[in-house]
Computed example of a mutant assay.
Amino acid sequence: MIPWTLLDTAKIPGGGELRLKQRGQEFSIMLGTNELMNSRLSGSERALATLSCEKIKGQKAPHILIGGLGMGFTLRAALGELGADAKVTVAELVPAVVAWARGPMATVFDGCLDDPRVAVHEGDVRPLIRSTKTTYDAILLDVDNGPDGITSEANDGLYDYQGLKAARDALRPGGVLAVWSSGPDDRFTRRLRDSGFAAEVVNTRANGKSGARHVIWLATKTGP
C-alpha cells in the first residue's frame, strides 16, 4: 500500500492545526486523529449543494454563501446547478486551505475558484452573515463537524440562537439555510424551528450509496 505523505500544515485561527496528506491521487485533511475531509468521499458535500439549489430553483440571479471551502466539492456541485447569472461567495477561515486548492489539490478543484461567478473571502463566515440583511438566497454551512463542532469552539456561534437569527436575517424571503453535519442533532433541529425556519432533516451518505451516514438540514426561512 502507498504510504501517506505529509504535504503541509496550517494553524487554525484560535488554536489547532490542520495537516494536508497525500497518498497517490488521494488527499486527506486531518485535525489531530480526526479526518475532516477526504478526496474520495464527496457524496454528502455535493448533496449539500444540489439539495439547496433545488430549493431555490427558478430564482433569478441567485446569491449563495458557502461557509467552508473544504475540498471544493460543495462549490463545484453548486456551480453545476446554477446558471450564468448566479453569484457564489465562499468563506474559508484558514488561508492555507485556499492555497492548497490552487496548489497541490488543483486537480481536485479543477479550476472552480477561477469561475467568474465565484468570490473567495479568506476569513470567518460569521461576519459576512452578521453584516448583511436579506442578501443571500441560500447559506450553505460545512463548517467544522456540524453543530457539535470539534475544530473551534467559536464555530458554535453559527449554530446557537443568535447565530441562527443572524442567518435568517441575512437570507432573502424564502431563502434556505443548509447545514452539513457528521451526525444527527435533535436539539439543533428544534433550535432551527424555534428560530423561524421550516426545517427538514436529510440523511445522506459520504460516498453515494455507501460510506458513513451524514446529515443535512434544509431550513427554509418562514415569514417576512
Rank of each mutant, 00 (worst) to 15 (best):
M1F: 12
W4Q: 06
T5N: 12
D8Q: 11
R23W: 01
F27Q: 01
N34A: 13
N34C: 04
L41E: 13
L41I: 14
S42H: 11
S42A: 15
G43N: 10
S44N: 08
A49Q: 08
L51T: 05
I56L: 12
Q59H: 09
G67P: 06
G67V: 09
G68L: 05
L69G: 09
G70S: 10
M71G: 08
F73N: 05
L82G: 02
T89M: 11
L93P: 00
V94A: 03
V97R: 02
A99Q: 14
A101I: 07
R102W: 03
T107D: 15
D114H: 04
A119K: 15
V120D: 01
V120A: 01
V125H: 04
L128P: 08
K133T: 15
K133M: 08
L140P: 01
L140D: 04
L141P: 08
D144F: 08
N145W: 11
N155E: 05
D156C: 10
G157C: 10
Y159E: 02
Y161D: 13
Q162F: 09
R168H: 12
R168F: 08
L177K: 07
W180I: 05
S182M: 10
D186T: 13
T189W: 00
T189Q: 14
T189V: 07
R191L: 15
L192D: 01
R193P: 00
N203M: 11
T204K: 05
R205H: 14
G211H: 07
V215N: 01
A219N: 05
A219H: 10
G223K: 10
